[in-house]
C-alpha cells in the first residue's frame, strides 16, 4: 500500500483533565475522500484539531507523508497543504470578502497554482457579487462558500470540512454539496464531517465512525451496514 498522505496512530488527546481521544488511528491517502462520522461529542472535532496541530495529543503520532508532525505548529501543518473549513465557519468578519480570499492565497507545494481568485469567483458567483462586502455581512450560506473558497485559495492537498452544511437552508446545502463534489473531482483529498449521511456516503470512499473517542468502524463506505448506522449513529 502506498504511503498515506496523513496518518495518525494511537492518538490520546486531552482537554485539561478530560481524556477525549482514546488511542485513535486515522489515515488518508492522496485524493481519497473520507466521511468522519459519529454523534455529537464523540471526538470528531478533537481528532481534527489534533491533526491540525491546534491541540497537542499527549500520546501518539501524526505523520504527513511519513514525516512526524505531532509537535509541529498549526501554521506549519497548514503550509504542508492542509486546509480547514471549521464548524461555525470562521470567516474574518472584519475583512472584506476579497480580503478573506487573498489573505489566504498560496501556491500549491509543487509550485502549481490551480485555485486562483478568478477560479474561486467562477465557482462561487455569489461571492463575486459581494467582493467588497465585509465578511460579517454575508448570509450563512455565503459565509460557508467564503470559507470553502478561502480554504481552496491555499491550494491544499487535503481539505477538512467540519459540518460544512450545518444550519443551512436545504437549497443552499444542496449547492454546497455540489461544490464539494466538484472539489472531489480535482483530486484533493477530503475529510468530511456531516450529519447528512445520505449525501456523505454518496461522495466518500471510506467511512470512519467514532464513538466516545474511539474508532469503531473504518472501512469502505459500501460496507457501512444499517446495523452499524443504527447502533453508533442513531439515525
Amino acid at each position: 500500500m502506498a504511503e498515506p498522505l496523513l496518518q495518525a496512530t494511537g492518538l490520546h488527546t486531552y482537554y485539561g483533565a478530560s481524556h477525549i481521544l482514546h488511542g485513535v488511528d486515522f489515515r488518508i491517502g492522496s485524493g481519497e475522500a473520507i466521511g468522519l462520522m459519529g454523534r455529537n461529542g464523540m471526538g470528531k472535532t478533537t481528532l481534527i484539531r489534533s491533526l491540525l496541530g491546534h491541540v497537542q495529543p499527549r500520546r501518539g503520532a501524526v505523520r504527513w507523508r511519513g514525516a512526524d508532525i505531532t509537535q509541529a505548529a498549526a501554521h506549519r501543518i497548514a503550509r504542508l497543504g492542509v486546509a480547514y473549513v471549521p464548524e461555525g465557519r470562521g470567516i474574518f468578519p472584519n475583512l472584506t470578502v476579497k480580503e478573506n480570499l487573498i489573505m489566504a492565497a498560496r501556491a500549491g507545494l509543487d509550485g502549481r497554482c490551480e485555485w486562483t481568485l478568478e477560479r474561486i469567483l467562477q465557482t462561487f458567483p455569489r461571492l463575486a457579487e459581494r467582493l467588497s462586502h465585509g465578511g460579517g455581512q454575508l448570509s450563512g450560506g455565503e459565509q460557508q462558500m467564503l470559507t470553502i473558497g478561502r480554504a481552496l485559495m491555499t491550494n491544499p492537498e487535503l481539505l477538512i470540512l467540519d459540518e460544512a452544511t450545518e444550519g443551512l437552508a436545504p437549497l443552499i446545502a444542496r449547492d454546497i454539496w455540489q461544490i464539494i463534489r466538484s472539489i472531489r473531482g480535482c483530486g484533493i483529498a477530503t475529510v468530511i464531517v456531516d450529519k447528512n449521511y445520505g449525501a456523505l456516503l454518496e461522495l466518500v470512499d471510506r467511512c470512519v465512525v467514532m464513538v466516545k473517542g474511539r474508532v469503531v468502524f473504518d472501512d469502505d463506505a459500501a460496507r457501512l451496514s444499517d446495523e452499524i448506522v443504527q447502533k453508533y449513529l442513531g439515525v
Partner: peptide, 19 residues
Amino acid sequence: MMIRAGAANREMAQALGIN
C-alpha cells in the same frame, strides 16, 4: 490583512498558514 485576521480569529488564521 493577516494582522486583522489574526486579531479576529487566532486559530483560524493559524489554520490558513499564518505564523
